[in-house]
Computed example of a mutant assay.
Amino acid sequence: MVDYATARMNMVESQLRTNKVTDQRVLEAFETIPRERFVPDHLRSLAYVDEDLRLKDDRYLVEPMVQARLMDVADIRAEDVVLVVGAGSGYACAILATIAATVVGLESDPELAKLAESALQEQGVDNAVVIQGEMNKGYPKQGPYDVILLNGAVAEVPKALTDQLSPKGGRLATVVRSDSGPGKGTVFERWEKAVGRRTLFDANTPVLPGFHKQPGFVF
């Protein structure tokens, strides 16, 4: 039988602390939230491995190190409102709910959205909600957001999402993947109408549906 508490602690010590995750609130959240409760039953024994876990079709639970580093560099504050694009099974929402004031999860897949809501309720998370909708359009109804986390990689970040960031230092964290080479953990920051970006680390994270590179015109 798997000792999940020990596996969780080992994940934090060997995957997160050794990979430049330094925000103590992020580390404590990963130590506390039971990752095994956010995967299908047949994957629970693998919940703490350092790789992406396939939830269904082309949807994955992002590996712990990548999720934690993106949360770390997003500099989330206790009063922040956070949007998670690609809520998946709800794990990232549960982690962020221990750090931020309000978390909105956006999920396009109805089965995953239902799974996420059920898992959050089971864990007693009362400051996070999962909304079903098109992920690349965001959820402007609850914006602007202090932080947007894209829970997967993207070929490029849609303007619709950066427009939903707070114009006073809103941050968006994701992995940006081109056609070749590794993806790059990247943070975008908005000040008024200007959006800057910082590239921080390599990550081969799967691309979220709806965020692949759009084909150009061929003449």
Rank of each mutant, 00 (worst) to 15 (best):
L55K: 03
D50Q: 06
L53P: 10
P34A: 13
R54D: 04
R44P: 13
V49E: 07
A78F: 00
A74D: 04
H42V: 11
D80A: 01
D52Y: 07
R69P: 01
P64N: 11
L61I: 05
S45R: 10
D58T: 09
V62P: 06
Y48W: 10
E51N: 06
E79H: 09
L43K: 13
V66A: 10
M65T: 15
V39Q: 03
R54Q: 15
A68V: 06
R59T: 14
L61M: 15
R37P: 00
V62I: 15
A68C: 05
Q67E: 10
D80W: 04
S45G: 04
S45H: 12
R77D: 02
P34K: 13
L43S: 08
D52K: 01
K56V: 14
L61H: 01
A68F: 06
S45K: 10
A47I: 08
L43Q: 14
D57F: 12
L61A: 14
D75I: 00
D72N: 14
E36R: 06
L53W: 08
A68L: 03
A68K: 00
K56I: 14
P40R: 07
M65C: 13
S45C: 02
A47Y: 07
L55I: 05
A74N: 09
E63R: 15
M71Q: 14
R44Y: 15
D50R: 07
V49Y: 06
V39G: 10
R54S: 10
V39C: 12
L53G: 04
D58N: 12
E63W: 00
L55Y: 05
I76T: 08
Q67W: 03
V73H: 03
P64H: 00
R69L: 15
P40C: 13
L53F: 14
E63N: 13
V49K: 02
V49S: 07
A78V: 01
D80Q: 01
D58P: 05
Q67F: 07
L53T: 00
D75Y: 02
K56P: 04
I33A: 08
M71G: 10
R54V: 15
A74H: 00
A74W: 00
E79F: 04
Q67K: 06
I33N: 11
E36C: 04
A78Q: 02
D72I: 13
R35G: 11
R59V: 09
D58E: 11
L43A: 13
D41V: 15
R69V: 11
F38L: 08
R59L: 14
P40W: 11
D50I: 02
E36K: 05
V66S: 11
H42Y: 15
R77Q: 09
R44M: 15
A47T: 12
L70V: 12
L53E: 01
M71V: 14
L46R: 12
L70A: 08
D80M: 01
D41L: 12
S45F: 06
L46Q: 13
E36P: 03
K56E: 15
D57Q: 08
D52R: 05
A47N: 06
A47E: 03
H42A: 09
R54M: 12
A47V: 03
R35D: 09
D41H: 10
D58F: 12
P40K: 04
